[in-house]
């Protein structure tokens, strides 16, 4: 793991050094593009002022993610068990992803006010889809030989689902979870733009409207950190639950 990560770390360091040098050399004004050192200074100095925004976003992301995953899984299982329903609803699922969130967001505020509801709806909307699609595909791609064996062995449909199809879909479900986890952070930030009183989204809007570009970058930095953190948690869970996969190439 450590040996593998030196390459991306080197690339990132290289970009930061180029960025730092060029902003000094060309004397770029801070409100256009602050130097990495300037961003770090603000990140350290302003921690006490903005940390509540970050924790608020983390909380919102977790709520939204859990809700989105639950809804995504339930939809996938329902559509898998009822093929007619899948036929009827699958196009609708895809269409739900074509709604521009930026347009929908203000509408949601009109319908549901400034509370938690419209924010959760936005996060759910961006993160249920990867889960639902990955799960449906995973369930559908169950090895037909194994299904045939289960039927010959006398398994009931419920047993085929719980003992075969669901564990078989687990790796797919985790692919979906990884995508959803990163989307949910973005969803949370976007939903905060709508009009929240705290959160990274709020901090970001305030910063950009007052030309505090360094703070915008601090916000971006924390969004990235949060994404990676959620991603890492999902990977950890995956390793814990899908141990058999490691040995497949062995």
């Amino acid at each position: 793991m450590i040996r593998k990560s030196w390459l991306p770390v080197t690339v990132i360091l290289f970009i930061i050094i180029i960025w730092e040098l060029s902003s000094r050399f060309f004397a770029i004004p801070d409100w256009i593009l602050p130097a990495p050192t300037g961003i770090m200074t603000e990140a350290l100095a302003g921690w006490a002022d903005y940390q509540h925004h970050i924790f608020s976003t983390i909380q919102l992301t977790i709520y939204g993610f859990l809700l989105g995953v639950t809804i995504g899984l339930l939809i996938a299982i329902a559509l898998h068990l009822m093929p007619k329903l899948r036929e009827a609803l699958y196009p609708l699922l895809i269409m739900s992803q074509n709604i521009p969130i930026i347009v929908l967001a203000p509408l949601l505020v009109i319908w549901f006010g400034f509370g938690l509801t419209p924010k959760l709806i936005i996060i759910v909307l961006v993160c249920f889809f990867p889960i639902a699609v990955a799960t449906i595909d995973g369930l559908r791609q169950t090895n037909p030989e194994l299904i045939h064996y289960m039927k010959m062995a006398g398994a009931t449909n419920k047993q085929i689902f719980t003992k075969l199809e669901l564990p078989h879909a687990l790796p797919s479900i985790f692919s979906g979870l990884k995508i959803s986890a990163t989307y949910s952070v973005m969803g949370a930030v976007i939903s905060e733009w709508l009009g929240a009183n705290q959160g990274i989204g709020v901090y970001m809007t305030l910063a950009s409207s007052s030309f505090r570009t360094d703070r915008v970058f601090v916000a971006i930095l924390f969004i990235m950190i949060l994404c990676m953190l959620f991603f890492a948690i999902i990977i950890g869970l995956e390793k814990l639950l899908i141990r058999w996969r490691k040995d497949e190439n062995g």
Binding site: E145, L146, H148, Y149, M152, A153, G154, K163, L164, P167, H168, L170, I242, W244, E248
Partner: peptide
């Protein structure tokens, strides 16, 4: 009603 062994082993990889 019967015990069955198929052509492919059909073991569950997990």
């Amino acid at each position: 009603s019967i015990s069955y062994m198929p052509q492919s082993p059909s073991l569950f990889p997990w």
